[in-house]
Amino acid sequence: MDLNDIIFGTDSMPWWGTVIRVSILYISLIIGTRIMRERQVGILSGHNYLVAAGIVSLAAVRMVNPKSSLYEVVAIIFSYALVNTFLSYLDIKFPRQVDRIAIPLMVKGKLIRKNLDATHITIDNLLAQLRLKSITNLSEIQEIYLEPTGKVNALTKPAAAPPTKSQLNIPVTPPRFPEVVIYDGDVQEQSLARSGLTLQWLENEIAAAHPGKSTDSIFLAIVETNGTLYISTGQAAQP
């Protein structure tokens, strides 16, 4: 067994040769995905899906076939990536010619049966997608579109839209992400600083919620979006 056998394949491949081949193919897949950039992962258009399915199937077959040539599969992977990158570029320049466009399923509150039939979306499918968006009544919807990614988006009628806090003159605080300030007993000082809080404040909150406990005995503490502190010791409450 030598390097040529690993690259060009052989009838009998030892386990360590298989490990090397799989590692090379895996690294090639990662590089190919990086070439295709985030669009490949985040937005699956028609050609993106075909490329992803083709690359995965090809890599799986070659990984288990000891007679296959690594040169061929690596060349095919990068060819797939380059073709997909070129098609994505054309999709940006000429989106309506290369990729699909959003299909209206409802316009001005009226369902378009022709488009529902063409996209093979049943009423049950449509209602299920709307429930995922917390929409239960078709009468409250102005427009519905089937996006090129396969997702359904809906625009509710102005009269059915809930009022905003600004319309109700309710004071609001600037939005922020939750910050983990303690994890497994370790205080995350950078998270505390981003939240504008101090270690003394954190210790006081822990003492008030769990008398006798210190930061070392806390499994998880999170400053939530509304400024409250969630504390967990990682142990079930005593009955």
Rank of each mutant, 00 (worst) to 15 (best):
R131H: 10
L132D: 07
L132A: 10
K133F: 13
S134K: 15
I135G: 06
T136K: 14
T136Q: 14
N137Q: 14
N137E: 13
L138M: 04
L138I: 09
S139K: 11
S139H: 14
E140I: 12
E140M: 08
I141N: 02
I141S: 09
Y145E: 15
L146E: 13
E147S: 06
P148M: 14
T149S: 08
T149R: 11
T149K: 03
G150N: 08
G150E: 07
G150V: 01
K151S: 11
K151L: 05
V152G: 04
V152C: 06
N153F: 10
A154K: 11
L155I: 13
L155Y: 06
T156F: 08
T156M: 15
K157Y: 11
K157T: 06
K157M: 14
P158L: 13
P158Y: 12
A159E: 15
A159Y: 15
A160L: 10
A161F: 10
A161L: 14
A161M: 14
A161N: 12
A161H: 08
P162S: 02
P162E: 13
P162C: 04
P163S: 04
P163E: 10
T164L: 03
T164R: 03
K165H: 04
S166M: 09
Q167T: 14
L168Y: 00
L168A: 09
N169G: 07
N169M: 02
I170A: 01
P171S: 03
P171Q: 04
P171A: 01
V172R: 11
V172E: 05
V172D: 14
R176T: 13
R176C: 08
P178K: 00
P178I: 04
E179C: 09
E179K: 02
V180W: 00
V181D: 00
Y183N: 02
D184Y: 03
D184I: 02
D184E: 01
G185S: 04
G185Q: 04
V187E: 10
E189V: 07
E189H: 09
E189F: 12
E189I: 09
Q190I: 11
S191D: 09
L192D: 01
L192R: 01
R194E: 15
R194A: 09
R194N: 06
S195I: 05
S195N: 07
G196N: 02
G196H: 00
L197N: 01
L197H: 04
L197C: 02
T198E: 10
T198S: 06
L199W: 09
L199D: 15
Q200S: 13
W201Q: 03
W201L: 05
W201G: 03
L202H: 12
N204P: 03
N204F: 11
E205V: 00
I206L: 03
I206S: 06
A208R: 09
A208M: 03
A209T: 10
H210E: 13
H210L: 06
P211R: 00
G212R: 00
G212F: 01
K213P: 02
